[in-house]
Amino acid sequence: MSIYTHLTAFGGYKVTLWEPGMPLGDPATTIHRIAVEYDESTPWADKLQAFLELPGAERTPGLVIGQWDEEIGTGTEPDDMIAALVAAAPRLPALRVLFVNDITSEECEVSWITNGDLGPLLAAYPALEVLGVRGGNALRLGHANLPALHTLILQAGGLSAEVVRDVVTSDFPALTHLELFLGTEDYGATSTPEDLTPLLLGGRFPHLKYLGLKNSDRQDEVAQVVANAPVLDGLEVLDLSLGTLSDEGAAALLGSPGVRGLKRLIVAHHWCSEETVRQLEALGPEVDASDAQEADEDDWRFVSLGE
């Protein structure tokens, strides 16, 4: 899985590119992506400033941050982008939806995107309701306190143990949708299933309905620890897709009363046998077991989103 296209919708809004000289879209339906192109002379922060100066910018409900530097794939750090967004916070009082790094693989592979400490950014926008971030390199959230956040999505070829612990120990009391692309060690994943413990014990996010622990090269272990975790009691959807799930991990799901009580189980992109898939489909929840893979003679398995 590579990311070939920019977002066209996010957080319930249509996403359109904004360039200096263009009018603002209807804030009831539209949010804008602000980005620079390769070899472009206008800095990203200057484009944001031009956006802020438009009449009605203060009613902007969301932003999508695209490529913020023409050399983003060379290890350039996003300090200037983060600082510009933090400084803009008083002029964006209605901002509730934010996606950081809507960057395609043609612009920069996800494993090359250098993030940074987004803690100051989250502190500047405490009313955020929907947050998406792409890229795991150097990413940190700190101990965030976002009382209205209901959706959090982190897309990466690999998430560090530190950022996973940032997520599961932060204060997101309204969270209903949590989606973590845990990734592979080859691209920076250092977390273990044990790092998920505060989440799996339940109660941390009492309104959680969708839990995505996906794209992991340790998907069997993730399935085994989540299969009988208290967090399942309140879930409607468990998403273990895009990773290396096999019959070993699926066996734990088959023996789990909590999994039987789900509305939907997603294991797409997997290495399960046809018989195991049939057993999963007979459990009770709606099951998505599409994109079955075949192991080679060395049993080599791969995550969907890596490089």
Rank of each mutant, 00 (worst) to 15 (best):
V222E: 00
K214A: 04
N228T: 05
L208M: 09
E236K: 15
R264L: 11
E236Y: 09
V259H: 03
R260W: 01
E194P: 13
L245A: 07
A227W: 05
G202K: 14
G202D: 09
S241Y: 03
A229C: 12
S246G: 10
L213C: 07
L253N: 01
P198H: 00
G234C: 06
F205V: 06
G202Y: 12
G203S: 00
K209H: 08
G255M: 07
V231E: 03
P198L: 06
G234P: 09
L235D: 02
V259F: 03
V237Q: 02
A252W: 08
L200N: 08
G258D: 06
E221H: 14
L213P: 11
G261L: 07
K209I: 04
V225S: 07
V222G: 04
G249V: 12
L242R: 14
D247Q: 11
E194T: 14
D239E: 07
E236W: 08
L235K: 08
E236F: 08
K209L: 10
V237F: 08
L199G: 12
R204A: 11
F205I: 02
K263G: 13
V259N: 01
A229V: 11
G261K: 13
K214D: 01
N228P: 04
L240N: 00
V226T: 11
D195I: 11
A223T: 05
A229F: 13
D233Q: 13
G202V: 09
N215F: 02
L253S: 06
D233F: 08
E248Q: 09
P206Y: 02
L245M: 00
L238P: 14
A227F: 05
D233L: 13
L208E: 02
E194I: 12
G243K: 01
G255W: 07
R264V: 07
S246H: 13
L199N: 07
E221W: 12
V231I: 15
F205T: 03
S216A: 15
G258R: 08
L232K: 09
V225I: 15
T197Y: 09
A223H: 02
V226N: 01
G258S: 05
